Each structure stands twice: as structure tokens, then as C-alpha cells.
Simulated scan of single mutants.
Amino acid sequence: MKTPEKPTRERIVEAASKLFYGEGIRAVSVDAVAEKAGLTKRTLYYHFQSKDELIAAYLDGRDQPNLQLFQRWFRDADGEVYDKVRAIFANLATAARQPKWKGCGFLRTAAELADMPGHPAVKAGIAHKQRVEAWLRKEFFEAGAADAKSLARQVVLLLDGGFAVVLLNRDPSYMESAGDAATTLVRAALPMR
């Protein structure tokens, strides 16, 4: 039995995602995305009015899967909340050891669009980072942290700093070091048991 073909819009976003993540948004043309999706440029523009709209769709498509992956790593880790936070960093370090790893797609896109703060993709990146922070804040609040808001912000800074330094140095141990720092912060912020 033949597998049904994916909807055209989904095929376009999937092709764009692979290319944008692998090569960067400015390096990839709309022609290249259309070719990878097996479509004409005209068909692509029927579904997306501009490359900017396609870039935003690429990041929107990464939002929930990335957040859910963090949540799964956290949930599946044994131990206290700080052990679960460390697991996120440990899993990111493992991912960074893969040859195709290119860092955080949200941060890389924001860097490429640094001169365009109102760009839809930058807004998508901001929204994603805010969702990660809100989720951590909720977890820390439920664990009894006195200032869950500040703690979540500090852990997000360590995550994003880890992404940046690992990408620069190509050394995943920096993500593990960021995880050590996050563990220390979270442990200190929680009530003694």
C-alpha cells in the first residue's frame, strides 16, 4: 500500500527546515527550497507569500517539538529537580556531539536577522524562548523555589550561553559545564529536604 503524500505546505516547511538549519537562512534561496520540496517556485509562493514568512514557519515548526523534547528529558530523568535540569544539558551535550548538530536554530536565525528585530522569525524565536522560560518557571515554582522567575531566567541564560559557546568552540563539554552551573543554582534555590 502506497504511503499518502504529505500536504504541500508541510513538504515545503520540511524542506526549508533541513536547508535553513543546515546552511543558514541567508545562504538558502527560495529556489533551493522549492527544488528540495520537489515543487515549482510558483507553488511555493502560493503557500508562502515571502521567504520571510517561510523562515517564520520554519521556526514555528521547531517550537513545540523542541519544547516537548526538553520536557521529556526533564520528566524522564531520575532524581530531584536539579538532576532533571542537568539531564537537559547532558542531552544537549550528547546532541552536540552529532556531526549534523548546528546549535539552536532560533539563536542562529536571530543572529542572521540581528538588524531586523521586528522580523516574524525573530518574534517566533522570542516566543519560543519565553515558552521554555515559562515552563521552567512553573517547574521551579512547583518544586518550591522562592524566586522561580529569576531561577528560570538564569537557567535559560545558561542554556543559550551553552548553545553559543559550544557552537563557537565545537566542544560539547561547555554544555556540560553550563549544566553543572544550572544544577548548582537550582539546588541552592530549592528548600532543603
Results as ranks from 00 to 15, higher is better:
Asp63Gln: 11
Ala127Val: 06
Phe141Met: 08
Ala110Ser: 14
Asp115Met: 10
Ile126Glu: 12
Ser29Pro: 04
Gln64Tyr: 02
Lys41Ser: 08
Ala16Gly: 10
Tyr46Pro: 00
Ala77Leu: 02
Tyr45Pro: 03
Leu107Met: 14
Leu69Ala: 14
Glu133Leu: 08
Gly125Lys: 03
Phe106Ala: 12
Thr8Val: 15
Arg75Pro: 00
Gly22Pro: 05
Glu139Val: 13
Ala37Ser: 11
Val132Tyr: 09
Leu59Ala: 08
Ala90Trp: 01
Ala15Gln: 06
Arg108Tyr: 00
Phe48Val: 07
Thr43His: 09
Gly118Pro: 02
Asn91Phe: 01
Phe20Arg: 04
Lys123His: 12
His119Arg: 13
Trp73Gln: 14
Leu113Ser: 08
Thr43Trp: 06
Lys41Tyr: 09
His128Val: 04
Lys84Tyr: 05
Asp115Asn: 13
Leu39Asn: 03
Gly24Phe: 10
Ala15Val: 09
Ile12Asn: 08
Asp52Pro: 02
Ala27Cys: 03
Val28Asn: 09
Asp31Trp: 12
Ala114His: 07
Trp135Phe: 12
Leu113Trp: 07
Ile55Pro: 01
Asn66Arg: 07
Ile25Met: 12
Ile126Asn: 01
Arg97Ile: 01
Ala32Asn: 00
Arg131Asn: 05
Ser50Gln: 11
Tyr46Met: 11
Ala134Trp: 02
Arg42Asp: 13
Leu92Cys: 05
Gly38Glu: 04
Arg9Asn: 01
Gly125Ala: 15
Glu23Asp: 12
Pro117Leu: 11
His128Met: 11
Tyr45Phe: 15
Phe74Tyr: 15
Gln98Phe: 01
Asp60Pro: 00
Tyr58Pro: 00
Leu113Asn: 04
Tyr58Cys: 11
Arg86His: 12
Ala111Lys: 12
Ile88Phe: 08
Ala127Gly: 09
Glu80Cys: 00
Ala27Arg: 14
Glu35Asp: 14
